[in-house]
Amino acid sequence: MTRATTTARRTVTLQQRPAARVRRRRLPVWAQSLALLVVLLAVWEAFSGRLVDPFYLPAPSAIADALAESAVAGTLWANLWTTVQETAIGFLIGALAALVAGIVFGRSPRVAAVLDPFLVALNATPRVALAPLFVVWFGIGFLSKVILVITMVFFIVFYNTFQGVRSVDATYLRVATVMGASQRQIFRTVILPAATPLIVLGLKLSIPFALIGAVIGEFIASSAGLGYQIKLASNTYDTAGTMAGIFVLMVVAVLIDLVLNRIARRVLFWQPESTERTTNTL
């Protein structure tokens, strides 16, 4: 009896104390992140030009200057717009084609089996290696980048859609069939919603790759875009300009990720909250 009471009291104090301490002493997480950022930038600023040659590692202030310069000149916005367009258009076409293909394949195992080796081979081919070929075929302009983005996006979305359509819990299909749903109704009301989590995951995973595709396309041959701007700066040993371009790409990727997570949470309202976050491969 006494022992039980003591244990109970101890449990209570153990649970309460750290919580109280957190509330009293710690800043909110975002403030801590911000503080860390400020410290890192200050250290970087102090090192650059003193311990490290600013040619290799320009100070944050120098990068900000380069950024401001190209923003004022307007080149930043033009290049940003080009890259965003290539990414968005390539993503939309690639994702749409992949959705249709994934659904068709998922619904007809025969087609899937026949085409599977081709898909495996195509998917195994490093898409980056195709980029020079695309330049020859589609020119150095907009089109070759869009095509490269499509090839990057397609397989990721395709495989996720295919898996999503194939792995619908058989119980749901049986129940719907017995309740009298037609094949079309089953597709619309059971297969599609059940496949949505994987489809959304595929879309989320593919966006960073879409951006990679656009930038690599621009590296190889182009006259516009953030990749072009970065390449131009590095060709002239302008490390501050290069890093400014990289910084903009980073911001774009983070923004896209934020928007996507918000949309995903909307669409997948019925799924338990997950702490999973998109891995950004940029």
Binding site: T171, V175, V178, M179, T189, P193, T196
Partner: peptide, 15 residues
């Protein structure tokens, strides 16, 4: 018309 109650619960989780 047939009604079917499965062993495990099979309510659609998205509805």
């Amino acid at each position: 018309e047939i009604g079917y109650v499965t062993q495990s619960d099979s309510l659609f989780p998205w509805r």
